[in-house]
Design a protein around this nucleic acid. Structure first.
Lengths: 169, 169
DNA sequence: CCTACCGATCGGTAGG
DNA sequence: CCTACCGATCGGTAGG
């Protein structure tokens, strides 16, 4: 609901209804609406991290690995249960201390990406892995949340491939 | 205020205060809060369109033109008076009919981009201009709103150049 | 454009 | 986890 309607437009009553509770009961489980958001973002980042690790386990060739990471990232972006990258739009509603906490976990997610990009640059299969390359890459992938339609002409595979080809041209 | 705090978190009282009005007065000028959003988005798109046209007037070489368009787009993205691409995040709060109206103007903004990309592809300076190339390009540029800091190491010029180099490799 | 106000909603709490 | 409720806020309006 935070993804589809946005944090501000989702009421704690909406959430209570969705799980068959009364309006006051969410606050038995969570101290505040913000803590609910923080929890779901952190859970999603964790799931994304694991999905990423699973996708690249045992893949030695860095180009193959990058392509799999991109596909895994897009999968996670549109998975109905944990659309974390979309939730990151909502981090702004957290208080600063919670925002710092989320940022630390999000940073950790970025590390394997930078490692793989550096590897490719070292092998000469990428002109450079210096900033802002990684951020441009995430831009290509994450922006798809603004226009991708599951019933459209382009598949997630096609998007991942097009972005990878652009990078590795 | 819609950009920095978001539409939902900006109250009509905030807006009234900012221009020295009383709480009810914005509704003398605008029928509703939504209409205020629609107006400011459309004005910003118009300004962006003109900034883009001004940047490419008389530029025949398509690569030069694309590079200028990218720089102009980033400038517009972070111009303090009309951060339209950021406002496009808020389109979701408009009712469907207003959303359609905005989408039509936003589509018009995309046309010169596709034209220039097609031109480059025709000249063989781009492997292809087929979808989702244009959208990947906008992803690289627009996503910078999530991480760009004016006081950081990277300038808008550097970002535009890195993205252009990636595209035209 | 202001005053005065309404109806509704919302996050959160006390007490059980 | 429910009931009952509060304090505050908010978009919007009537009347001038």
């Amino acid at each position: 609901m935070f993804v589809s309607k946005g944090f501000m437009a989702t009421t704690t009553r909406d959430i209570a209804d969705a799980v068959g509770m009364r309006s006051g009961s969410p606050f038995y489980h969570f101290r505040s609406k913000q803590e609910l958001l923080k929890t779901v973002i952190l859970e999603g980042l964790e799931a994304g991290q694991q999905r990423l690790q699973a996708a690249i386990a045992g893949i030695d060739d860095p180009e193959q690995r990058l392509r799999r990471m991109m596909r895994a990232h897009l999968d996670h972006l549109f998975a109905s249960d944990c659309q974390t990258p979309l939730l990151l739009y909502e981090v702004r509603w957290l208080e600063p201390s919670a925002r710092v906490e989320v940022a630390a976990v999000a940073d950790r997610y970025q590390q394997p990406w930078q490692t793989t990009l550096d590897e490719l640059a070292l092998l000469g299969r990428l002109p450079s892995s210096a900033p802002p390359l990684r951020l441009l890459l995430f831009g290509m992938l994450n922006w798809s949340s603004q226009w991708f339609r599951p019933d459209g002409d382009l598949s997630l595979d096609a998007i991942a491939e097009a972005a990878a080809d652009l990078l590795l041209a």
